[in-house]
Simulated scan of single mutants.
Amino acid sequence: MSPTLEPEPLCERDDVDVQTETRTLTRTEFETARDVANHLTLGVANDAGEVLLVADGVRGWTLPGAPVGPDEDWDAVARRALESLTGVDVGIAEPVRVRRVEFERDGDADRQRTTYDVLARTASVPGRPVADEPTVAGEDVTDLVWLDRVPEDASGAIATDIEAVLERSAE
């Protein structure tokens, strides 16, 4: 059985890196933040020590991800996203980290909203599987690559996530 990817229980585990940030927002910003979706980031690793990256027009090469709706099952979202991208049934090996962002409205401590981004590493897959028509969150993916390193233009949280998946896959 795969580990659960539900973020709140993951935040209690010692083996999962939890990063918390609190952002105080104006009323207008807070209303906009209410629409920020939870997110699942997937580190798809293969038996050659490579990870699957997709081209994000804004951020460059990044790990694939999918939004998670308020009533959606995180594990089901992961299974669907992985199969739609790789074309194979890939299991989750382990959750790696949770980024928790707590939005609060300036001057109103009772108005809060928390979003999560969970990074999970998959079980190792043989070769370089890619679905015939790969998609992520219902969107066609035209540019993807298997790499055994962090891309040169990756930085910040994206580079850190890719590096974490590569390191854990090598263990």
Rank of each mutant, 00 (worst) to 15 (best):
G127F: 11
A120Y: 02
F103T: 01
P134Q: 03
V130F: 10
T122A: 07
D161I: 01
V90M: 08
D110E: 14
L144R: 15
G156I: 09
E104Q: 15
V118N: 03
R113V: 02
D140Q: 15
V165Q: 07
L144D: 00
E94N: 05
E133I: 14
L119T: 12
A93Q: 12
A137M: 07
V136E: 14
T142Q: 13
E102C: 10
G127I: 04
V130R: 10
D106G: 08
E167A: 14
E152C: 00
A164W: 07
R100P: 00
P126L: 07
T115W: 00
A120G: 02
W146L: 01
T142D: 14
R121A: 03
D106N: 11
E152V: 14
G138W: 09
D153P: 01
E163C: 01
T114E: 06
R111H: 14
E104S: 08
I158G: 00
R121L: 06
T135I: 11
A131D: 08
E167H: 13
A123M: 06
I92A: 02
A137E: 09
E167N: 09
G156N: 12
P129D: 10
V118L: 05
E94P: 04
R113I: 01
A159W: 01
S124K: 09
T142L: 13
A123T: 05
P151W: 06
A157V: 05
I158N: 09
D143R: 15
E163W: 03
V141G: 09
L166H: 14
D132N: 13
E163M: 10
E152L: 09
A93I: 03
G127K: 07
D140I: 10
D161M: 08
G107N: 08
D140G: 13
